[in-house]
Every structure is written in structure tokens, then in C-alpha cells.
Design a protein around this nucleic acid. Sequence first.
DNA 1: TTTTAATGTTAACACTGTCAACTTCAATAT
DNA 2: ATATTGAAGTTGACAGTGTTAACATTAAAA
Lengths: 202, 202
Amino acid sequence: MPNKSYHHGDLKAELIRTGLKLLDQEGYEAFSLRKVAKACNVSQTAPYRHFKNKDELIIAIAMEAMGAFNECLQKAVDQHPDNPKKQLTEMGIAYIHFFVENPEYLRLLFLSDMRYKMNEYFCAHPEYFQNDHPFQTFFQTIERYKAAVPSSNQSLGKAELMLFSWGLVHGISILIANKEIPLEGDYLSMVRKIVESEKFLD
Amino acid sequence: MPNKSYHHGDLKAELIRTGLKLLDQEGYEAFSLRKVAKACNVSQTAPYRHFKNKDELIIAIAMEAMGAFNECLQKAVDQHPDNPKKQLTEMGIAYIHFFVENPEYLRLLFLSDMRYKMNEYFCAHPEYFQNDHPFQTFFQTIERYKAAVPSSNQSLGKAELMLFSWGLVHGISILIANKEIPLEGDYLSMVRKIVESEKFLD
DNA sequence: TTTTAATGTTAACACTGTCAACTTCAATAT
DNA sequence: ATATTGAAGTTGACAGTGTTAACATTAAAA
């Protein structure tokens, strides 16, 4: 039953929710403020009462997506509380799995122009960055691993290991999600082989 | 000296050249057909005599960029004709270096919506894909390496090694170029350490 | 020399983000 | 209880976008 009152009640939340759905359905480039407004049965300019401009709405949507992504990583980590190495590999696999199954999230979070604007936003709001940002989850997992297996990859410091493992799963996610690389068969088993490859861990 | 005649002479080439410059200067989202036309001293709709639509111009521009990128990879490979392993590592480093120094190329070639349209284009024009596409350069280098060092990474097949090494340099390029990861110091020496890390080659 | 097709132009359309000005209405202050 | 105010909605307008249709120019082919 549509709320026919002049005031909507919770437009801000519905804009984010509807926006995420539209972004998922129609892609980043086709995304338009007016469409979101229309989908919420509200005038073109109503969103401006809740967001300074289009970018800020997209950033809010991206925050939602970032949270979901981070939860996914954290869950993988939490399933192996006493095994830092397995935490790292399972988190890596979860990373790839999440983005291959949700390619639109990948574009929103990392592959669109929004990425640059979000970086600015994070600089302006460091408190967010320090809490449940995937970067932190990744970094902490690396630190636990390095602490638990001090002999590991002696030639690579913490920063290099971070760049190595993050870069690896990030790149693989994109290559698969964007169909950059022709793959036959089950990508997940390939990914597991790679990520667990003893050649790069331990 | 501006060519004042009604017909331009070589508008198509100038559109691509000017377009690449604008893309580089103002970024992908700010890029507009009308601006390119204006920059070429030509009416808004003149480009439509040479390209079916905006996408086709961008694809043409991306082809140029793709060629430059592939040349860069090929050059790195050619500098070590008798050392397949060094070919692979140096190509990887060149890969990262190219995109970190030309982040707008990275966006154009891999991070924008254009990526998807280009994939469709490649499917329609497989002859291009088979020649000087970076994918081929990468794949051939992997194959030479695998042939030269058959014992390498026994647990990983050619497809997995491809996904591993390409994913690694691709991901690292993006993390650095997009400033996703805070880096202090010289990124190139870090990259060299990682890519040459004996843990993942041999 | 005539024809024609390639290459240019102008005018218009629908769509976009955004602003200014106006309206409604719930909550607060008197 | 009533007046006021400010948050949240509206309409209308503007400049910029991609794109199409109709027309103009001119180099090359017939």
C-alpha cells in the first residue's frame, strides 16, 4: 500500500535501497538520480533533501555494499579462529567468490569513477576507514598470519605481503568477473588451488 | 595553420588523437563527444560520419591505448630473448609500471563500462584479438616459461599459472594506480621483490 | 560536365544533474 | 490552543549530453 501522504517517512533509506537495486539491474552508467526518484514515487528533486548530489547518494549506496563485502570477508575469517594461515586463504577465496557472484558490487566499489570520490570521502571521514573497512580486515589477517608464521616469506615484508595477497585476489576477481580471461570449468577450484599454492604461502 | 576548408581531411584520426588527450586530461566520466568535436573545430555531429556512436569512438581510442600497452609488454619480453623466466617477470613489472604511470589508460582499458563493450567488440572481430592483444603476449610468455621450466609449479596448470600471474600484476596495478593501498617509498622496488619472489616462480 | 556519395552543418528531441522558488505539514514555542 | 518555523516535498527552469533527421558542400567518379 503506497503511502500517499505528502511526506514520505523514510525516503533516505528507500533511495539507498532502490538505488542499489537499480545499480545492480541496469549497471553503473545507466544509473540516474531521476530514475531512482521515480522508482520511489517521488519527484526528481526530492533526493536533494537527503543527499547533496548524485555522488553522495552513490557513495551512500557504496557504503552499504562495502559493509556487505566486509561482512563476507569477516565471516570467512571467523570460521577459522585458530588458524591464521587458513584465515588468509579462506578470506582470499571469499573475496574472489563475492565479487564473481556480485560483479556489480565490484564495479561500484572498485571499478567506477566513484572509487576516486570514495577515497576522498574516506580521507574526510577517517573514522569509517578505521572500523569495518575491508582494507582493515585484510591487513589484520595478514598481521596475524605474519605473527603466527614468522618464517614465512622472509624476503617479503608486511607491506609487500599485503600488496601481494591483496593484489592477487583483487586481480583474479576482476579477470574472472569481467570475463577478461576465458575459463573452462569450475573457477572456484582453480582459485582454491592458486590461493592455497604452497609456492606463495609459507 | 587551421584547415578552413569545408572538409577536414583526416577528421577520424584527429578525433581519436584528440579524444585520447581529453580522456587523459579530464577523465572518463567527463568525456563527451561534443567536447571532442569542439576541440577539433568541427560541429557536434561531425563525429557521426566516422563513428556510429560515442561508444565506437571510445573503442577506437581504447584500441590505440591497447596497442601502446601491448608494445610496452612486448618490448620488455624482447629484451630477454633467451630467458623465459626473466621475460615473465620483466613483463609483469612492465605491466604494473605502465598502468601506474598511465592510470587513465588503466581505466579506459579495464576499469570502465567500456570494458564490457570492448569484449563484445572483440567477439565480433576475433582477428584483432588473435594478433597484438596483451592477452596473447601474456599467454605466449607463460607458455614459453612453462616449456622452458617444466618442473615449475607442478601443482598449477597453464590456466592456473596464467590466472595467477596475470591476476597478480593486474591487481597490483590497480591497487597502486587507484591509490587503494597506502604505500611509502618506491613502489617499483616493492613490485620487483614481489614479482621476482622465488615463492611463486620456479 | 554531370552525378553521386562522402563529409560536413543546423535544428530538434529526450534525457540528465542541479538550482531556485514555492508548498505542505509535523513539531516546537509561545 | 495557536503561531511559527524548518524539514521534506513540489514544479519549473537551465545548461549539458547523445542522437536523429534534414539539409549543404565538395571531392571524386561517371
